[in-house]
Computed example of a mutant assay.
Amino acid sequence: MKEHEQEMTEYVKSKNTKITSVQWDWESIEIQIVTPNAGGIPAGSKYKKLSIDGGFNEINDSNFLLSFVMSDNNQPEIESMYIQQTFRVGGKIFNG
C-alpha cells in the first residue's frame, strides 16, 4: 500500500478541498470479507476489502476510512478506492 501512498493522498484531497495534508495509520490496515445484502438478505457474491484509517491537516482527532476492493490475487484494486467513513474531527463531520 505504501507504494500507492501518493495516489491515495491525492484521491483523499480531491474529495474535500479543505484537506491539505493526509496522515496514514499504516498499522490500521484491515482486510475483511464482505457479504453484500439488501435489508439483511444476502445479495451478491462475497468479496474482500482492505481498509486503512487516516487523519488530515495534522489535526490530532481527525479521521476518515479509505477502502479498496481486493482482487482475486489478494491485491487492493487502486481504482476501486472509496471513502468509507467521511471526514471527521472529534467525532463530528468536518466542514472546514
Results as ranks from 00 to 15, higher is better:
residue 1 M to L: 12
residue 1 M to Y: 05
residue 1 M to C: 05
residue 2 K to W: 13
residue 3 E to K: 15
residue 4 H to I: 00
residue 4 H to Q: 06
residue 5 E to A: 07
residue 5 E to V: 06
residue 5 E to H: 04
residue 8 M to R: 11
residue 8 M to V: 15
residue 9 T to I: 06
residue 10 E to V: 14
residue 10 E to N: 10
residue 10 E to W: 08
residue 11 Y to L: 13
residue 12 V to L: 11
residue 14 S to Q: 09
residue 14 S to M: 07
residue 15 K to T: 05
residue 16 N to M: 12
residue 17 T to I: 14
residue 17 T to P: 15
residue 17 T to R: 12
residue 17 T to C: 12
residue 18 K to W: 10
residue 18 K to L: 15
residue 19 I to P: 07
residue 20 T to M: 09
residue 21 S to L: 03
residue 22 V to G: 00
residue 23 Q to T: 05
residue 24 W to D: 00
residue 24 W to E: 00
residue 24 W to C: 00
residue 26 W to N: 00
residue 29 I to D: 03
residue 29 I to A: 02
residue 29 I to R: 02
residue 30 E to W: 10
residue 31 I to S: 04
residue 32 Q to G: 03
residue 32 Q to E: 08
residue 32 Q to I: 14
residue 33 I to D: 11
residue 33 I to L: 09
residue 33 I to V: 14
residue 34 V to M: 08
residue 34 V to G: 04
residue 35 T to P: 13
residue 35 T to W: 11
residue 36 P to L: 08
residue 37 N to F: 07
residue 37 N to W: 14
residue 38 A to W: 15
residue 39 G to A: 05
residue 41 I to R: 14
residue 41 I to K: 15
residue 41 I to N: 08
residue 41 I to L: 09
residue 42 P to V: 13
residue 42 P to Y: 08
residue 42 P to C: 06
residue 42 P to D: 08
residue 43 A to C: 06
residue 44 G to Y: 05
residue 44 G to N: 09
residue 46 K to Q: 12
residue 46 K to W: 05
residue 47 Y to I: 01
residue 47 Y to P: 06
residue 47 Y to A: 03
residue 48 K to P: 03
residue 48 K to M: 02
residue 48 K to A: 01
residue 49 K to C: 04
residue 49 K to V: 12
residue 50 L to W: 01
residue 50 L to N: 01
residue 51 S to W: 02
residue 51 S to V: 00
residue 51 S to G: 03
residue 51 S to Y: 01
residue 51 S to H: 02
residue 52 I to Q: 04
residue 52 I to S: 02
residue 52 I to N: 03
residue 53 D to P: 07
residue 55 G to Q: 06
residue 55 G to W: 04
residue 56 F to M: 03
residue 57 N to T: 04
residue 57 N to R: 04
residue 57 N to I: 08
residue 58 E to Q: 12
residue 58 E to Y: 15
residue 58 E to K: 07
residue 59 I to H: 07
residue 59 I to Q: 07
residue 60 N to L: 08
residue 60 N to S: 06
residue 60 N to R: 10
residue 60 N to G: 12
residue 61 D to W: 10
residue 61 D to V: 13
residue 61 D to N: 14
residue 62 S to N: 10
residue 63 N to M: 08
residue 63 N to P: 07
residue 64 F to A: 08
residue 64 F to Q: 15
residue 65 L to R: 10
residue 66 L to P: 02
residue 66 L to E: 03
residue 67 S to K: 04
residue 68 F to H: 00
residue 70 M to I: 15
residue 70 M to P: 08
residue 71 S to P: 04
residue 72 D to W: 01
residue 73 N to R: 03
residue 73 N to E: 06
residue 74 N to W: 02
residue 74 N to A: 04
residue 74 N to R: 00
residue 74 N to D: 11
residue 75 Q to L: 06
residue 77 E to Y: 14
residue 78 I to Y: 04
residue 79 E to F: 07
residue 79 E to V: 11
residue 81 M to H: 00
residue 81 M to D: 01
residue 82 Y to E: 05
residue 82 Y to I: 01
residue 84 Q to I: 07
residue 84 Q to M: 14
residue 84 Q to R: 10
residue 85 Q to L: 15
residue 86 T to E: 15
residue 87 F to K: 12
residue 88 R to A: 11
residue 88 R to V: 06
residue 88 R to L: 09
residue 90 G to N: 12
residue 90 G to M: 07
residue 90 G to D: 11
residue 90 G to I: 09
residue 91 G to Y: 09
residue 91 G to I: 05
residue 91 G to N: 06
residue 93 I to P: 08
residue 93 I to S: 10
residue 94 F to S: 03
residue 96 G to D: 13
